[in-house]
């Protein structure tokens, strides 16, 4: 049966999905490649009462070159964004995207992707905006699965959409985990985490290396933001660091506090989804919002405060 997201049983949690004793706050949010391979072996992926596996990549064709058996494609541009307004899917679009992939409101969804799970974490966060309760990340993402020599296939699974009730049209509830520019302005002086590269933080770079089309008019960071590049949360194989190591970075070194309201941002909101996941689900922060407007909004906005220079 599906295990439920629960705040009360952190230490005792013995969910079979976790591969290690890393002691995360919500360990059921992370599954290992071994666990997923076992689910495939047991024919649980795509079964009417089974789990749904989604691949969410930066590269829209990567899924088509070969994917985890039984996985379906979820594209951040086409499926999760509004086609016109800079915003996420509306309730009808989201319900249609989920229904087409055989996802019901109570389905366990496992997401993985390229680039250290940036877009997978982004998709997980968008699903959380719609209150989907049981959505997890594959620790290490696509790269780890490939590195371990596990099976990939080009066969796109057929989805029997009549096997379960259509996904309900539910309101998107942005307020708890999404921050807008006005929210950030009201939050100035509070805890902020800038997850971009050091050069973007200091203001030397107006865009991320290799991503010039997502540039900004002004360089620097939001005043008071701590600089913690997203990759510091990851091991070399793309898996998340242990809770102990994460606490050493975010709590001890950066002085963040799990009970404080915290806002994370990057450039367009995808790398900060990765950090949002770390703070919320691995470290148990109670109130973390992702500012998806991020630097492509802040750095282009008129008369918002900007700070420059290396981290203090």
């Amino acid at each position: 049966m599906t295990s439920r997201f629960s705040l009360g049983c952190m230490a005792e949690h013995t969910d079979p999905t976790t591969s290690s004793s890393d002691g995360y706050a919500h360990p059921e949010r992370l599954v290992s490649t071994e666990w997923l391979a076992g689910q495939i072996e047991a024919d649980r992926v795509g079964a009417p009462d089974g789990i749904v596996v989604l691949e969410s990549d930066e590269d829209v064709l990567l899924y088509d070159t070969g994917h985890i058996p039984g996985a379906l494609k979820l594209d951040w541009h086409q499926d999760l964004n509004d086609a016109v307004v800079r915003d996420y899917a509306d309730p009808e679009q989201f319900a249609a995207v989920m229904t087409a992939r055989g996802v019901g409101r109570d389905t366990t969804v496992v997401i993985y992707g390229d680039k250290n799970n940036w877009w997978a974490a982004y998709a997980l966060w968008v699903m959380s905006l719609f209150g989907h309760e049981d959505v997890r990340l594959l620790d290490g993402g696509r790269a780890k699965w490939v590195a371990e020599g596990r099976e990939l296939t080009r066969e796109v699974p057929a989805v029997d959409t009549s096997a379960r009730a259509p996904y309900p049209v539910v309101e998107r509830d942005d307020a708890p985990i999404r921050a807008f520019k006005e929210d950030v302005l009201a939050h100035l002086g509070g805890a902020l985490v800038d997850v971009r590269s050091p050069g973007e933080y200091s203001g030397e770079l107006l865009h991320m290396p290799d991503y010039p089309q997502e540039g900004a008019m002004r360089g620097g960071h939001i005043p008071g933001a701590r600089s913690v590049p997203w990759a510091r949360a990851a091991n070399d194989d793309g898996t998340f660091k242990s809770r102990e190591d994460l606490e050493a970075i975010y709590l001890t070194e950066q002085g963040l506090t799990p009970s404080d309201a915290t806002i994370a941002y990057c450039r367009i909101g995808e790398r900060s989804s990765h950090t949002w996941f770390v703070l919320t689900h691995l470290l148990g922060f109670k109130d973390v919002r992702n500012y998806d407007g991020s630097w492509t909004e802040w750095g282009n906005s008129v008369r918002v405060p900007v700070e420059q220079g290396a981290p203090k």
Binding site: D59, V60, L61, L62, D64, T65, D114
Partner: peptide
């Protein structure tokens, strides 16, 4: 690289 099929396309 093969991990960038769209760009290769």
């Amino acid at each position: 690289p093969p991990e960038a099929p769209t760009t290769r396309g």
